[in-house]
Design a protein around this nucleic acid. Structure first.
Length: 491
RNA sequence: GGCGCUAUCGUCUAGGGGUUAGGACGGAAGAUUCUCAAUCUUCAAACCCGGGUUCGAUUCCCGGUAGCGCUACCA
């Protein structure tokens, strides 16, 4: 079997090849993004390939999670494949390697889960590489089970090498590479074989993947060569690790490593992408906030660094916001503020409705500018705009109504006065401003002392958007009835 | 155990034989506004250790240490 050799200067073809054994991991998402950026930057093709050869561990839920996550990122891809539909190719490739003498049957039964630590370097099972073809064929014909192993050319060749676009020239002695499996004893291809056979067949020109594959790459180079294909350009990415330095894993770190967690918490995909890009890569200038097109324009393999990057999340946090890397949250707020009011409003609406609150697009559009600078995640709309969204204000401590350097009597006086004035004031920013400031002067108090009780009466808390805009959006009726209730509460 | 990769503020990073080692997040302080937020200003905060090369290393080389990855039919 032969594989086409990509000609020099042809369009780059990259692939993202997740194995559906869990949800879409943030590390995988970054790998996807880097591949996508490379493809877009160089007018290449992005291939999505599900590496689902491990039937034992693959789940439908995982496939869905991966597509959910990728769909949310909104980057897209050009071609899509499923490795499980390409078994014939993999097996043909394995046997082609066998026929060329680069592989042999290993009849040694697979090791059971042994606890003992391996001592020294294991290279092959004794007796197996030397088995004659005749003997090998005879035992196979007799129905004996075997794995197909690559015959690493340790005597004819000193080293295997490749140039990594990130880690530079890599060399390994063949004496340190073990005879790895190509086919399992059930005839199914291993990851190494399936991956390389597919990469060769799909004419992948650049393999951009996690650094955990760096030391597997020698095996891959060997497979490509045995297949008669040119090894692609490799670029390994530093790993994303948890604050404790260990590899991110669901078991250890929980849902924080899943892309959908960020989506559900109200991250903007463009902010999440921006954040992930800054982990292990930098544009080399001082820019931090980068949009999709800016990333495409700035991206290069040379900008990738080699040390692992910590995703600085917290496992125990008081608020959901605090669980995420603070820089991710900050970047999200930056992207949020860069959105037009219309755009932001449209993204906020489903969040509000998803929480079971019914709001019209018009009302949302009016609320949005008031909370735009006060939210960091889309979900924050529920706490930042609660008093706009709820019919009835939840109960609050009447003591909150008392202004600075004042008492309950002053609060009552302010509110009673405000009720009277607001009833006959036009609910526009300018009119409210003039009326309430004049009232403060009239009562001989500071504007802040005037505004505070009204704010609490209307919003149910001290921290809220500017008063006049708030009153305007809330409308006269709601404001007056809330002030009324507050006066009652003061007793 | 073997093989490999990596090492700059708490975190993400820039830089690179001579620099006040830069930026960002987060933290602290202040300014500003009707509160909050946003914004602005200021401050604290780093070159893992040891040797070598050199007039001079945080930067280059070697060693150590630490972390991480791979390690016999997971991907």
């Amino acid at each position: 079997m032969t594989f086409p050799t990509p000609s020099a200067g042809s369009v780059p073809r990259v692939r993202f090849a997740p194995s559906p054994t869990g949800f879409l991991h943030v590390g995988s998402a970054r790998t996807f993004i880097f591949n996508w950026l490379y493809a877009r930057r160089n007018r290449g093709t992005m291939v999505l390939r599900l590496d689902d050869t491990d039937v034992e561990r693959n789940t439908e839920a995982s496939v869905n999670s991966i597509f959910d996550g990728l769909k949310w990122l909104g980057l897209g891809w050009d071609e899509e494949y499923k490795q499980s539909e390409r078994l014939e190719l993999h097996q043909k490739a394995a046997w082609a390697i066998f026929e060329k003498g680069f592989a042999y049957r290993d009849f040694t039964p697979p090791r059971e889960g042994e606890n003992e630590k391996p001592q020294g370097t294991w290279l092959f099972n004794p007796g197996m590489p030397e088995l004659s073809r005749v003997e090998s064929d005879r035992r196979a014909a007799a129905g004996e089970r075997f794995a197909l192993r690559f015959r690493v050319p340790r005597t004819s060749r000193e080293t295997v090498q490749f140039a990594d676009a990130v880690y530079g020239e890599q060399v390994k002695a063949t004496a340190d590479i073990e005879d790895f499996a190509l086919l399992r004893s059930d005839g199914m291809p291993t990851y190494h074989l399936a991956s390389c056979a597919d990469d060769a067949d799909l004419q992948i020109s650049h393999i951009i993947r996690g650094q955990d594959h760096l030391s597997n790459t020698y095996k891959h180079v060997l497979i490509f060569e045995a297949l008669g294909a040119m090894p692609p350009q490799f670029a390994h990415l530093p790993l994303l690790v948890a604050p404790d330095g260990t590899k991110l894993s669901k078991r250890r770190h929980g849902p924080i490593v899943s892309v959908t967690t960020y989506r559900d918490a109200g991250f903007l995909p463009e902010a999440f992408i921006n954040f992930l890009c800054l982990l292990g890569w930098s544009p080399k200038d001082d820019r931090e906030k980068l949009g999709r097109e800016e990333l495409v324009a700035a991206f290069s393999l040379e900008g990738i660094n080699r040390a692992n990057a910590v995703v600085n999340f917290k496992e125990v946090a008081a608020t959901p916001e605090e669980t995420f890397d603070p820089k991710a949250v900050w970047l999200n707020a930056e992207h949020l503020r860069a959105l037009s009011v219309e755009d932001l409003s449209a993204r906020l609406l489903p969040v509000v409705r998803g929480a079971g609150l019914d709001t019209s697009p018009e009302k949302m559009l009016a609320i949005t500018p008031l909370i735009r600078e006060r939210i960091k995640l889309l979900r924050d709309v529920l706490t930042a705009a609660d008093f706009f969204l709820a019919e009835q204000l939840p109960p609050f401590d009447p003591a909150e109504l008392i202004p600075q350097k004042g008492d309950a009597a002053l609060a009552r006086k302010v509110l009673t006065h405000a009720r009277e004035l607001l009833a006959k004031t036009e609910f526009t920013h300018a009119a409210l401003d003039a009326t309430l400031r004049a009232a403060a002067q009239e009562l001989g108090i500071k504007p802040g002392q005037m505004f505070q009780p009204i704010r609490v009466a209307v919003c149910g808390r001290k921290n809220a958007p500017p008063l006049f805009e708030t009153l305007e959006v809330l409308g006269k009726q709601a404001c007056l009835s809330r002030i009324e209730q507050a006066i009652e509460r003061l007793g």
